[in-house]
Design a binder for these strands. Structure first.
Lengths: 201, 201
DNA sequence: CAGTCGACGTGACATCTGTCAGATCCGGGT
DNA sequence: ACCCGGATCTGACAGATGTCACGTCGACTG
């Protein structure tokens, strides 16, 4: 019995390479590919595949957003996330969204095929290199603090952040101050950089 | 006559996929693969291939550094750069380093194979999507301005930037002000973001 | 040679940012 | 009912950031 796949990845060349690679396996059938999050959702709804293999970083809608949406839809399709960096924040959010497999692009290609098969068989598969580092660094920020930092990372001045979130300017300054303290850095820029590095944004 | 290739790319899974893909072509022979810049250099020196296909972003030594070094070595191997983003700064530096081919990961897979063949035949091949955007947006920053912005982007306060570059603090502020004006943004954070987006950092 | 232009460098001033010391609200425990 | 901790929110103050007017130097031009 063949495993029916949908593949989502924003870089066309990588998407094509993965698709051809997986299609070479006799028990795998790539029924559709998608170049962004919304297209992946559509493809899954249309084809109802056994497994969706998706990248995290994609324009418009991230792989994690797709996962959360499919969970809300009650789709039976199992999810495998393929991503570039070993960010614990991503893994945590992925697991919370009911993702079954989590593979790094740093891993050898065989591992992708292997993971697809095991996930289809009902197992949960997380790259071991990642599983260890997953919980050592939990995000210390509150939701509000993260909201503020996200806007600050885009370069918005406090006044604009305050307006956008319906806060007083002093409040924004205070949230950023708290974040800076929690992350042990010196200013909003370092805060944004380290939070990004750890997948907390 | 087969074309002998070396392939360099830091993400093992993508490297593997590309390698298998290229190996499927009857006229291409992948003689070695490398996971970083120095390994790519060694592989080229050892195997003396017809073409080196390399990523730009790699740990240790970027694909552009490899290109420059091979040029200094006087190697006969032709270079094809494969990269993620359409950054005009990268292309300019690549062409200055004597690179023969420049392909985007956003392009379809066939284009990679095609480019390798045409480069081997002696042609220069630049992704058309990139060639147009290459010179329209030239980096308006001076070297000194870029130095300052780079440090500011890491989150260093003006005092530290001044100390690092042996400048007065006022000078640092002035450079950043100039950069902010040139890029048409509001503060150092937006400046860093847009400069990064355009490959000027 | 005088004039111009751009890169580089600087200090004074106004604005923005980070810190601090609180206030309010809500849920859990005693 | 009471206290406690944490998340949310705020204004006053000190220090960092951005703007401006300015001076120097080297290269290029008429």
């Amino acid at each position: 019995m063949t495993i029916r796949l949908v593949l989502a990845e924003d870089q066309a060349m990588v998407l094509g390479a993965f698709a051809q690679l997986l299609a070479l396996e006799p028990d795998l059938d790539v029924v559709a590919t998608a170049a962004d999050g919304p297209a992946a959702l559509d493809a899954v709804r249309l084809h109802d595949p056994d497994v969706l293999v998706t990248d995290v970083e994609m324009p418009g809608m991230s792989g994690l957003d797709v996962a959360a949406q499919l969970r809300r839809d009650g789709a039976r399709t199992r999810l495998v996330i393929v991503t570039t960096f070993a960010r614990s924040g991503y893994l945590r959010r992925a697991l919370e969204s009911g993702v079954s497999g989590y593979v790094l692009k740093d891993a050898p290609v065989d591992q992708l095929v292997d993971t697809v098969r095991r996930v289809h068989a009902g197992q949960r598969v997380v790259d071991p290199a990642l599983a260890v580092a997953a919980w050592d660094g939990a995000d210390p920020m509150t939701d509000r603090e993260r909201d503020v930092l996200r806007l600050a990372a885009d370069g918005l001045p406090n006044t604009d952040i305050a307006a956008r979130l319906h806060l007083a300017e002093g409040t924004v300054r205070n949230y950023l101050s708290t974040v800076i303290t929690k992350l042990g850095v010196r200013n909003r820029i370092e805060a944004a950089n380290t939070a990004r590095d750890r997948g907390w944004l």
